[in-house]
Design a protein around this nucleic acid. Sequence first.
DNA 1: AAACTTTATGATATCGCTAACAGTGTTTGT
DNA 2: ACAAACACTGTTAGCGATATCATAAAGTTT
Lengths: 345, 345
Amino acid sequence: MTTSKRIRIQDIAERVGVSTMTVSRVLNQDSKVSDAKRALVMKAVKELNYRPNVAARRLASNKSFFIGLLYFDDLDTSYLSKFLLRGLKICRSTGHHLVVEEIDDDINKALASVKELIEVTQVDGLILLPPICNNEKLLTTLQQANVSFVRIAPDTQLNLSPYICMDDYQASFEMTEMLIKQGHSKIGHIIGNPNQGVSRLRYQGFLDALRSNKINVPPEYIEQGLFTVDSGVEAAKKMLSLDDRPTAIFAANDAMAAGVLSAANMARISVPDELSIAGFDDGHLAVSVSPNLTTVRQPIQQMAELAIDIIASGKFSDLAKANAREFRNVLDFEIVERESTNTLK
Amino acid sequence: MTTSKRIRIQDIAERVGVSTMTVSRVLNQDSKVSDAKRALVMKAVKELNYRPNVAARRLASNKSFFIGLLYFDDLDTSYLSKFLLRGLKICRSTGHHLVVEEIDDDINKALASVKELIEVTQVDGLILLPPICNNEKLLTTLQQANVSFVRIAPDTQLNLSPYICMDDYQASFEMTEMLIKQGHSKIGHIIGNPNQGVSRLRYQGFLDALRSNKINVPPEYIEQGLFTVDSGVEAAKKMLSLDDRPTAIFAANDAMAAGVLSAANMARISVPDELSIAGFDDGHLAVSVSPNLTTVRQPIQQMAELAIDIIASGKFSDLAKANAREFRNVLDFEIVERESTNTLK
DNA sequence: AAACTTTATGATATCGCTAACAGTGTTTGT
DNA sequence: ACAAACACTGTTAGCGATATCATAAAGTTT
């Protein structure tokens, strides 16, 4: 093995002929370095392929370089793992580390473990995935503990912290319009779990798209689901047994859409010929059922990147800043047309 | 915030009345400490709720406390995320960190990035998930680089390194016997991706179970798949259109089993009444389709724990030891009966 | 032009831990 | 009985970075 001694900040300093502090300043974006020296240092850094020693940096700076990621068991595995994998990658490049913690059902246990996490690892910041990013007790605790946090797709108290989300309402609106353009006018909707705000947004987008196209929705075309496959099956069974059943069903997530598909199969209704189905999320599931689901792609990876960047860059430290416009990030979505929807014949 | 100063090794030393080295020795399982002092130190450690400062430890000891996890894109997300989540948890308790790296299709790029990973992060060891744990070039490179690694479910060169796996052959055998006990004798099998060794093992277990029960398998009941949903659909279509079609199909993983389910639905064959379906893996998918899949549960979490423990404990450093029996771990599986299989009527 | 800022740099002291060596006693070997 | 081996404990010196303070040079004010 080529035991090529690891390059230290000192090696660079010697090569360039400055002190280690100057190098450190350059590396930490500290502005008080002359352009000439900064350039020299940067050049040497590249030439020697210098990588900071995270441990030393952490020890000296008394920052932890840890980022906590809190999620709730409930969350779709594919959502989580996408977020996680991208997050881990980004972290590596910034020298941070992800500390992932599952949040307990029991809020008191959860609070205790989060407090423990904060004390023990001294995280620089936390990322809260939905739906726990809306838990009031948790949010209060974090504020009291004076920890920075970024929330993903929150639906309450939007100026409590920086957040990242996509426009669920608009996505739902556009998906519905797409179905309408395909000739559907009898469109059903399965609402998501009512204790997640996105369910309401998606429902509203659906309704408004129909209204703006002057299409009426009979109440039987709306069912309440729970974001689970089973709830999708149940809802679809009811809708599909109607005398005048819908020609398209838009479920508020992929799991329920998969449920609709199962129900359709059981009822011997062919998809997409007799029934179009649309989902929301574009997780693994969307391409694991056949026909593959038409769905809305959430920009999860991008969310992960942004979330980590916000914390890693230390851009916000005091809460005043945290409310600044730049920390309200609404990302673009994408409608992915696959095989489960089709023009109405 | 209670800014309770973090406890240092020195605080303990002072309280007990020994030097910091003695405390350090106790904490690092170094044997040369008298039982009396060891007990005192341990007591203080508990009372003060001491947690070592990982950064300092890393800096001083020149170990990285990093563990690399290499995976190939191909891998089922749910497999990966289960492994990852448990791995991250275990790591936290040992003070290690996971550095996760996706391996490129192009083996040369992959080797380059692995080398980079090793140099940059100075990992204490690597964990190789299937199928890349069988890649010869990669293995050779790692050996040359003199890095410790543990392989998960490898199927070649078994005494090259410690490994962890389950008995795929036996699991497949038992699953098949279960179907036979349910009264099935016309059982089809969809073989997994031929370039993963487990496919062969599962196929063999299937064949041997039938043979030991004196049941004949017509060649039309065996199809080659690729571990993908689509390949499952294709294989099932063929099998289900036979004049004398099987009453049960055992697919070598859940994705293909989900494919079989889709095909059955398309062909209006009811599951499990007219067709029983069994899968393998027990990932997220198994409970996302309906009916839920009967399948084999892989002890993924346990694999993760063990893998990390082996590396974290530094139990093996030279390759001689690495071949010892204790590093060949075959874990138990579990057959999970759900709704997709039923007694033949 | 004296007095005061501001800006760019360096010297030095840590951060919390462990490696390496240097003692103590205490046991063992011959 | 005296050297050699062993078991236990402490001392000292870093690991590689940053914080903090000090200093020199340049720019501003009055």
